[in-house]
């Protein structure tokens, strides 16, 4: 690792801690008064949505394939983790331990499902793949509607409330960091080469199917973790929560944020999680406003808010200090 890179990682770590401390301080000081729990809830929602959207971006933005079934992987993570935490509750694990084991189990289950779906599906491209992933998500939903262990068609309730805001926040930080490292690794470069031109990629000696399945599995793994946090935040869920609309919502957040930009996904997810809540005062016109905002973003920023561009704290600070130096010289 170069010195520059170390500094960049350090800076970003400081930035994340500052944001966290700021939010916690605001909550502790009671700035939001009676709605503190409500705001904290929105922040938790934003955290798991960021994980889901960023993981979908691995497939849509970095691999360049359309997936319309991300909610399917989210639901696998959600249900598996709920079952695991239910089974392990009261077995001597601390709350935090239970939470970590549950989300890891959810992530692994979704990741394995990603491999199973990916091996046959990723020989397809474009529209065909989109249809297959959509069908997969529907199959999962119907299965969960009929398994007794998932509560059948009824609500699965009584899931432990393990997802607090700090936990969701730090899991999100770890997940996004891993995804960022994946994208910047040799694997990430290879996957982007496949997106650019799969014929050239295979001529260069890249095993296209292997890398596609790998990316799909990584994406599903993180989707499952997002689902697990969701399950332990909501404490009750029904398979219809994870229908096609949910997949479409995640996809629109990827596109609004910018396909191929992880920081874009973060902004997109936070923005679209907070937007419906912020618009509550418009009551019945809420969903209308939401749609108008989506249309406006697409009209004026067709590549999403960030496009393929990544926000970099180092670059911003570099520019600020540089400007100050030139200002000094000028004076």
């Amino acid at each position: 690792m170069t010195k520059q890179r170390k500094i960049a990682y350090l800076l970003n770590a400081v930035g994340v801690v500052v944001i966290f401390a700021l939010l916690m301080a605001l909550f502790a000081a009671g700035v939001f008064g009676t709605s503190t729990t409500y705001i904290q809830g929105i922040c938790t929602t934003a955290c798991y949505t960021v994980i889901m959207v960023a993981s979908l971006n691995l497939v849509v933005g970095f691999m360049g394939e359309f997936s319309l079934g991300h909610a399917g992987f989210v639901s696998v993570g959600a249900y598996v983790s709920a079952i695991v935490s239910g089974a392990l509750a009261g077995k001597g694990l601390s709350d935090l331990g239970l939470f970590l084991v549950a989300i890891l189990a959810g992530g692994l289950a979704a990741g394995i499902m990603g491999v199973l779906v990916g091996i046959p599906a990723l020989r397809l491209r474009g529209d065909y793949l989109a249809i297959v992933t959509m069908a997969f998500a529907e199959i999962i939903r119907v299965c969960f509607c009929n398994f007794s262990i998932t509560g059948g068609g009824k609500t699965l309730s009584g899931i432990l409330k393990l997802s607090t805001f700090p936990r969701a926040f730090w899991v999100m930080v770890v997940c996004v960091t891993f995804m960022y490292m994946f994208v910047r690794s040799k694997f990430g470069r290879t996957v982007q080469a496949i997106r650019e031109d799969y014929i050239a990629a295979s001529a260069a000696g890249i095993n296209v199917t292997f890398y596609k399945v790998l990316t799909f599995a990584v994406s599903s793994f993180f989707a499952g973790i997002g689902g697990a946090i969701y399950a332990h935040y909501m404490t009750a869920m029904i398979p219809t929560n994870f229908n096609f609309n949910y997949s479409a919502e995640l996809l629109s957040e990827v596109i609004i944020g910018g396909t191929g930009s992880l920081t874009g996904s973060i902004i997109g997810a936070v923005f679209l999680s907070a937007l419906p809540e912020a618009m509550r005062q418009f009551a019945t016109y809420r969903m209308l406003c939401y749609s108008v905002v989506l249309v406006l973003v697409m009209l004026f920023r067709p590549g999403g808010i960030f496009g393929r561009w990544e926000f970099s704290l180092t670059r911003v600070l570099g520019r600020l200090t540089h400007r100050r130096e030139t200002a000094k010289k000028g004076a």
Partner: peptide, 22 residues
């Protein structure tokens, strides 16, 4: 197909397949 190049046989495909945004 992905192993063929390791035997030192390269293929320049039709239509200039390069990676445009790299």
């Amino acid at each position: 197909p992905s192993k063929i190049i390791t035997h030192k046989l390269a293929h320049v495909p039709e239509g200039r397949h390069i990676f445009p945004t790299m």
